[in-house]
């Protein structure tokens, strides 16, 4: 019998948490909350395979671990490959009578650097081979653990230590890689975007990801006060705002074909201006200079365009 997902407070309080206190993520980091919500969706025995990055490093500083479920550290680029192997091994062990479990869920976790960039080949391969696993990226918009380097997930206008803002550059110029779309183009059974503020939506989607046969992908937004130069108390508010300005729209894609916009995004009358999102964060502070007005307008136009396109895909007028 599968354990139910915990979506209501009463059920959440009853369910075993998968991450303990005593981890050494920065104060106010959203990633442990993302993991907590992932845990609320679990249905039974689960193994997590995690690429290096803040969450991996700071939850498992030897000889301690904050994880309460089986967890394996892998290299930076191969979380999806290791998870493929674990999923297949568990199936074979059961067939040979060497595992007592009817079924074991396998989850790969990577940061945006580990997923959008360096682990992308391994991810694409795992999706194509069709292993029964969930891959979750926690996206904090840069290689935070090594000192805030730009990644494929870094936003236009965002300052990092490899996309400095200054006299001639407004931070990163390029757009963010549309990873959820690229993953959906692999025609896998399930893709969804989530954020910790909308926690019920998060848990329900993660549960669906576990339940489908074959690979599923979850793109979780994960504010990082250290790298974003934002107040530690604002991380959850920022994840809400990211949805409201359209940077992280919430949707699901079934079999790479059926696009469904989720209520928090669907219920928006219109997007809030990006300005409101930038205002909270030191990493966009330079954009206040009127010399970047043209650049800002371009970024806002692009955002509006992407939003209209997404609405069309989801069949919304």
């Amino acid at each position: 019998m599968a354990e139910p997902a915990a979506v209501r407070l009463k059920d959440m309080l009853q369910k075993d948490q998968i991450l303990s206190a005593g981890h050494r993520m920065c104060a106010g980091c959203a990633a442990p909350t993302v993991v907590k919500l992932m845990g609320m969706a679990l249905r039974g025995p689960t193994i997590v395979c995690e690429a290096t990055g803040c969450l991996e490093v700071a939850t498992t500083i030897y000889p301690f671990t904050a994880w309460k479920i089986p967890w394996i550290h892998v290299a930076f680029e191969n979380a999806a490959a290791v998870a493929s192997g674990v999923a297949e091994a568990m199936t074979v062990m059961r067939e040979k009578g060497r595992s007592e479990y009817e079924h074991v869920d396998v989850i790969a976790v990577g940061g945006d650097g580990g997923t959008f960039d360096i682990g992308f080949g391994a991810l694409s391969g795992a999706l194509e081979r069709g292993h029964d696993m969930v891959y979750m990226v926690y996206d904090n918009g840069a290689y935070q653990n090594t000192g805030i380097q730009r990644s494929g997930a870094t936003l236009p206008g965002q300052e990092t230590t490899t996309s400095w803002a200054g006299k001639v550059e407004p931070g990163k110029r390029q757009r963010k890689k549309p990873l959820a779309e690229i993953v959906a183009a692999h025609k896998i059974p399930y893709v969804a975007t989530v954020d910790p503020y909308h926690y019920r939506d998060f848990v329900q989607k993660f549960r669906r990801a576990l339940e489908v046969e074959g690979p599923a992908f979850i793109h979780a937004y994960s504010p990082c006060p250290r790298g974003w130069r934002s107040d530690t108390s604002k991380s959850i508010e920022l994840s809400k705002l990211a949805v409201e300005v359209g940077i992280h729209p919430l949707f699901e894609v079934i079999d790479g074909e059926e696009w469904i916009m989720s209520s928090p995004s669907k219920n928006l009358k219109e997007l809030k201006p990006l300005e409101e999102y930038w205002a909270f964060q030191g990493q966009f502070r330079h954009l206040k200079d009127p010399k970047w007005d043209d650049f800002k307008n371009q970024v806002q136009d692009q955002m509006n365009h992407d939003w209209e396109l997404l609405k069309k895909r989801c069949g919304i007028e």
Binding site: L19, S20, G22, F64, T65, W67
Partner: peptide, 15 residues
């Protein structure tokens, strides 16, 4: 292999 066999023993580290 440096396995950590006590789940959630990070609780021993007070933050």
């Amino acid at each position: 292999a440096g396995n950590i066999i006590e789940p959630g023993n990070a609780m021993k580290y007070k933050t």
